[in-house]
């Protein structure tokens, strides 16, 4: 699925990374605990979260993720947008709640985790 499709499905605002919307992604995860993302995620390209602080972006960067979706209409700070921009990570904001956002993407073919 292209990131541009995620934007459409979640009716999301693109906060940074307009140049990367054609990037193809194959799996996603949703979590407010960065500890869990760091420990359990493997190869998911998209992170959906309701947490807003700079560690969300750095966690995504460490995990080689390419897109972060803030749910419940949360908005990242300017500093977070800067960090994401520098790393080429797309930031989206959607009014959908976590469960609905994840469900919508899953139902449209974006997979979850492949467990080891």
């Amino acid at each position: 699925m292209k990131i541009s499709t995620i934007v459409e499905l979640l009716d999301a605002d693109v906060l940074t990374g307009v140049d990367h919307l054609e990037t193809d992604v194959h799996s996603a995860c949703g979590s407010d605990m960065m500890s869990d993302v760091l420990a359990y995620v493997k190869d998911q390209a998209v992170l959906l979260t309701g947490l807003v602080n700079s560690q969300v972006i750095r966690t995504a960067e460490m995990m080689d993720m390419v897109c972060v979706v803030f749910v419940r209409a949360k908005r990242p700070t300017l500093e977070m947008i800067d960090i994401a921009q520098e790393s080429g990570i797309v930031l989206l904001s959607s009014e959908k709640r976590m469960y609905d956002a994840c469900g919508t993407l899953y139902a449209n073919g974006l997979n979850g985790a492949r467990h080891e």
Partner: peptide, 9 residues
């Protein structure tokens, strides 16, 4: 509340 402290690090 900042997203850490699961004892996984």
């Amino acid at each position: 509340s900042l997203g850490f402290g699961a004892g996984m690090g």
